[in-house]
């Protein structure tokens, strides 16, 4: 590895990413374990039974789910409060899209990932991809879903948490659970693609490694995130 590396993620971002990943995984499993009703549990009653055995009862499972959820939300709240500039920059980055070229990128990426270059040719498309910034459009879509979904999940979770503490009307808790479940389901659908792209697909392996080291090779940056690479290069020139 004698190639020049470009700094991509701070230590704090890396920590937040893996903290988020751990919380998501744990909250998903404990949450799924809370749905004991066979009409509602998507995987069947064996899973909640197993989780209840592991945690020593549904009430313990609920407690772990609730307090881990609060810790998860609290950590992100702290990040937003103490890292306002970084949060704003992140939100601006992931919610800024250029519809025409990004949609083309999405179509091409789907064809490339499932049918390869031949697939692109079959539809009369060139193998080059519309240039992407710090995040590509797929990463942006998943980040948007995570941000919006995260807010919805936390708000509905808080409604359910406070239902037996201070709420006199049961309706909000009942509907919050429906929205909570739906949102988690949709974000989880995206999460499958996110995990595949990062950890399994060969193309994005350097991005996966950067979630540990914080750096990507200049070659990767130039080929996968050319707009970001150009930006970094000009900043570098200015510094020099």
């Amino acid at each position: 590895m004698n190639e020049r590396m470009i700094h991509r993620h701070t230590r704090l971002s890396i920590f937040m990413h893996w903290f988020n990943a751990f919380c998501w995984f744990a909250l998903l499993l404990t949450g799924l374990g809370l749905i004991k009703n066979e009409q509602l549990n998507p995987v069947g009653a064996w899973f909640p039974s197993l989780m209840r055995s592991l945690f020593g009862g549904g009430e313990n499972l609920l407690m772990v789910h609730q307090y881990l959820g609060l810790i998860w939300a609290g950590a992100f709240l702290a990040y937003v409060l103490f890292k306002r500039r970084e949060t704003w920059a992140f939100l601006k980055e992931v919610f800024t899209v250029s519809p025409a070229s990004d949609m083309l990128w999405l179509v091409k990426m789907n064809l490339k990932m499932t049918m390869g270059r031949k697939g692109l040719q079959r539809f009369g498309l060139t193998p080059d991809m519309p240039p992407q910034g710090f995040y590509n459009f797929g990463q942006k879509l998943f980040a948007q879903a995570s941000v919006v979904g995260g807010v919805v999940i936390v708000v509905t979770g808080l409604v359910m948490f406070f239902s037996t503490i201070s709420m006199d009307n049961p309706g909000p808790a009942a509907w919050s659970r429906v929205i909570h479940y739906l949102t988690v389901g949709v974000v989880f659908a995206g999460l499958l693609v996110h995990i595949f792209m990062a950890a399994i697909s060969r193309e994005e392996r350097p991005a996966f490694m950067s979630m540990f080291t914080g750096n990507v090779s200049e070659h990767y940056a130039r080929h996968h995130h050319p707009l970001w690479h150009a930006q970094v290069a000009t900043e570098k020139d200015k510094d020099d």
């Binding site: 009862g57 549904g58 609920l62 407690m63 359910m160 709420m167 808790a173 659970r177």
Partner: peptide, 10 residues
């Protein structure tokens, strides 16, 4: 089970 109930009223 009052500890497991979230009071949804179903």
């Amino acid at each position: 089970n009052e500890a497991l109930c979230i009071g949804c009223g179903n």
